[in-house]
Amino acid sequence: MENSINERRVISVIVLNESSVLARITALFAGRGYNIESLTVAPIPESDMSHITIATNGSAKVMEQITKQLHKLIPVYKVIEHEEMVEKEMVLAKFPITEHLSDVGALCAAYNGGIVNVGKEMIIAMVADEPNRIKHFIEAAQRYNPSEIVRGGVVAIER
């Protein structure tokens, strides 16, 4: 029953950059009972298209349906089911200024980031890394009493 094993997958959807196209995509996921773990969207430079990256999970059969149903939407140009990809996610975290700046800086550096803003009471750090490493960063960051953490969602590109 390899078909029924739920697997995490990342899909890129290239769409015409028109109004309500994102609503069509998310409504399709909601209406057909598919999961969205994360979703990012931004225009593709110098084109009338946008790139949507969706992290989802499901069995092989469900993944095939997701791809086909997405492709059926009129403004969808291309659906890429990533196999060999470079995948990154960004996260911003806010720490009290009373924490050790050098420790926080070292932690962020270990996860491909650094301190990006220092205010009177807070410092803001940014890291960008693979999603599972982002999870580890967030765990590790807990000891520095973060007051707020914002994850950016996955972006991916086929190798």
Binding site: S19, R24, I74
Partner: peptide, 16 residues
Amino acid sequence: AVGISRPCTKHNFLVR
């Protein structure tokens, strides 16, 4: 209308 009819049309348009 386009929101309500999204899942029951092949496609829909709001003319802008």
